[in-house]
Design a protein around this nucleic acid. Structure first.
Lengths: 125, 125
DNA sequence: CGGCATCCCATTCGATACTG
DNA sequence: CAGTATCGAATGGGATGCCG
């Protein structure tokens, strides 16, 4: 809790804070976008690859989210004129710049999730 | 979850990352909760005070959000048996622990918002 | 003052079927 | 493979009225 400039601190928060968080959440504050970005942080991925790696998302919703994120400048869509078609999705620098946000959200979530966890990544051997 | 993939990095993000961000956003990933928390970071506030400070929120939604946040353990509701009634809302330690998340989201938002007008609200301190 | 209750709309979600 | 099309369900949110 910081109040370095106690003059008009509520106004400061109101003006400086809301718009920031609201804007950020307008870009990634929903069910799937953070997960999508999180995946793409490992590198570009093809559509089906993405779909399979995100458990529970429907095709329609995935496409919708990807289009919105593309319009928002978070990801780039790379189309290869091949047969069969190949499309890859890649984070833009803007999308990449969201990594710290996701990291801190992820860390908090893991810290405060109910029940166990801190699962020692068990990969099917 | 899928186990057919035995590569390490994707699985690492999948297990360590998603649940974290998804859980975090299930608590604050909507239109109003971040703003509410942001306000309460300055200290406890009364219901009406909160309502007036958050421009555009309806009573119904405000109450709904407050109740959810109370159930999630983010805020505490303090009822004073007076006439007229007085109710104050205060962040719990859990709620307070979200400050870094909001800070980073706010900072990112301010940095990347399309700013028609540069409004440097550097409150002189 | 601090709310619930009610009604209603808009957006989002999810599943399925189909296509270039 | 990488999407569209369609539809119905669920959820989020706004306006208003009433009440202890």
């Amino acid at each position: 809790m910081k109040k370095e400039n106690s003059t008009n601190s509520i106004n400061a928060r109101q003006l400086k804070g809301d718009c920031g968080t609201v804007f950020t959440l307008s870009l990634i504050g929903n069910r799937w976008k953070p997960v999508i970005i999180w995946r793409l942080l490992d590198g570009k991925m093809r559509y089906t690859e993405l779909k399979k790696s995100i458990n529970g998302i429907s095709e329609r919703v995935l496409v919708l989210q990807l289009r919105e994120m593309e319009n928002d400048g978070l990801i780039q869509r790379l189309i290869y004129p091949e047969v069969p078609p190949r499309v890859e999705y890649e984070l833009t620098p803007l999308g990449l710049s969201m990594e710290p946000i996701l990291e801190v959200m992820s860390a908090w979530g893991l810290d405060h999730m109910p029940q166990e966890q801190e699962v020692p990544i068990k990969v099917a051997g």
